[in-house]
Design a protein around this nucleic acid. Structure first.
Lengths: 142, 142
DNA sequence: GGATCTGTTCTATAAGTGATAGAACAGATT
DNA sequence: AATCTGTTCTATCACTTATAGAACAGATCC
């Protein structure tokens, strides 16, 4: 597995690992049930300590995105269609972060249309399951 | 000035200060030219050290959102209408952060329509200038 | 002029985080 | 038995965060 990691960036390595895997799940590159490299293997691939990878995996496990076991290794837990929508309360955190991030763009002078265009562009790269949760009016991939 | 600060939260205080002010600018509570409390005054109001407030102000100054001087204090620099759209390259960082954040929601099972609804809800709380930059098809506040 | 407030800069300390490292244990596979 | 897996523990080093005190230069007010 090859993940684009910036060792000298401002964002911690373990979080970069977590972010790239989250994006891989959303984009459909890593569907539900698909396996990920072992902690030690990915550490070798990325050239980092295996504790760092373990920290990233553990973050994904706490978010309910990964199921980790000595037997099966690390596999993507959630299939966005059936599983529970989300842990309540995490949505609030997420919405708050979204609010701050979009406010940043608005404060910098970006128009509402431009912001929405960026959101649509990002979502267009995701692979949503055939029957979205309670509503599937969006784009997805027909 | 009263900012909701969580001293024991995972996000640093200086960044909470920065985030709240960014949101105040985007929502129109702090329009271009409006003044902010002095570093020392806001520190007293929030019950934190003035170095912490100074760090938050300095971050906003580096982003081009604040103009700080011994004479005028700290005033909101950018009026989203006229000013330069943005420092090129910062948009890439912002778009990357947006991509990661939206991927998080998609991986958790949120549908495209639900994600877009959250984006629209956040944008609806912002006050965009009458003539948006190059396009004003969005909501804003008529 | 003198006092005061401002932003800015410098050093310093204590606590926490990030990343590395080594070692060990228990379950599973070969 | 040997190997690989995830997991846990301690330990170290560098960096960040938040606090604190002190000092300087420009601006304002009495």
């Amino acid at each position: 597995m090859l993940l684009p990691i910036e060792p000298d960036g401002p964002v911690p390595i373990y979080q970069q690992i977590r972010d790239r895997i989250v994006e891989a799940i959303a984009s459909g590159v890593q569907p539900a049930g698909s396996g990920l490299p072992s902690v030690r293997q990915l550490a070798v691939d990325l050239g980092v300590n295996f504790h760092t990878v373990n920290k990233g995996y553990d973050a994904l496990r706490r978010e309910g995105l990964l199921r980790i076991g000595r037997k099966s290794g690390a596999v993507v837990r959630r299939d966005p269609a059936s599983g529970p929508p989300e842990d309540p309360g995490l949505i609030d955190d997420w919405a708050a972060r979204l609010h701050t991030l979009l406010a940043e763009a608005a404060a910098q002078g970006m128009s509402a249309a431009q912001i929405m265009a960026h959101c649509e562009a990002a979502i267009a790269g995701f692979a949503f399951p055939p029957g979205g949760s309670t509503a599937s009016a969006g784009g997805g991939r027909p």
